Amino acid sequence: KEEVSSHTSPETGIWVTLGSEVFDVTEFVDLHPGGPSKLMLAAGGPLEPFWALYAVHNQSHVRELLAQYKIGEL
C-alpha cells in the first residue's frame, strides 16, 4: 500500500486499488467519463469510497475495463 500511495501523478504513474488488486490507470485518466479530476481523487489509494458514491461503477463492463490495467496484488 505504501508503494501504491507514491503513484499519484503522470510522472510516477497513477495507481489505484480495488480490493487486493492494484491497477495502473495512467493511460485511462484522460478517458474517464467523469473527467480526469474525478479519477485523480482516488490516485494512490482505494477506489471503493468513490465507487460507493457512484453506483454506475458497479457494472461488469466497468470491471472488465479496469482489469486491463491490473499490474499486481497488495
Rank of each mutant, 00 (worst) to 15 (best):
G13N: 05
L47P: 00
G13K: 04
I71D: 01
T8N: 14
P36F: 06
F28K: 00
H61Q: 04
G72I: 06
E3A: 12
D24K: 06
D30E: 12
F23C: 04
H7K: 10
V16T: 13
V29K: 06
L18I: 05
Q68P: 02
I14K: 06
A42K: 02
T8F: 15
V16W: 00
G35V: 02
H57K: 00
S60E: 13
A52N: 15
E27G: 12
G72Y: 05
P49L: 06
V16Y: 06
L47M: 01
A42N: 02
V22A: 15
T8W: 08
I14S: 02
Q68G: 11
V25N: 08
E64H: 10
Y54I: 02
L41F: 04
E27P: 12
L74K: 11
E3R: 11
V4H: 04
A43V: 11
T17L: 11
H7G: 12
Y54K: 05
H32S: 04
E64C: 10
I14Q: 01
P33R: 06
S5H: 14
S20D: 10
W15T: 04
L18K: 15
L53P: 09
E11L: 07
P33N: 02
G13C: 05
S60C: 07
Q68F: 07
G19D: 08
S37L: 08
K1P: 04
Y54T: 06
H57S: 06
D24M: 02
G45Q: 08
L53V: 14
E64S: 11
E3L: 14
A43L: 01
K70T: 04
G45E: 04
L39I: 15
A43N: 04
V25E: 01
S9T: 13
S9D: 15
A42W: 03
E11R: 12
V56F: 14
L18F: 11
L74Y: 15
G34Q: 01
F50R: 05
V16G: 08
H57Y: 08
E21R: 09
L31Y: 08
V62M: 01
V16F: 06
Y69Q: 05
Y69P: 03
H61T: 06
Q59M: 06
H7M: 10
S6C: 15
W51H: 08
A67T: 13
W51I: 00
S60A: 12
G35Q: 06
S60N: 10
S37Y: 08
E2K: 12
E3T: 14
I71F: 06
F28T: 00
Y69N: 08
P10Y: 11
K70P: 03
G13S: 07
N58R: 12
K38S: 07
E2D: 13
L39V: 11
A67M: 15
G35W: 03
E73D: 14
S6D: 15
L66S: 02
R63W: 08
T26M: 05
D24L: 03
V62P: 02
G19R: 09
F28Y: 12
D24A: 11
E2C: 04
F23I: 05
G13P: 03
S20A: 12
F23L: 03
V62A: 03
R63Y: 09
Q59P: 05
F50P: 04
S20H: 12
H32G: 03
K1A: 00
L74D: 06
A43P: 02
E48Q: 02
E3G: 12
N58Y: 13
P36D: 07
G34N: 11
F28E: 10
V62C: 06
P36I: 04
T17V: 04
V56G: 03
G19M: 09
L18W: 11
T8S: 13
E2F: 15
F50T: 11
V4F: 08
S6I: 15
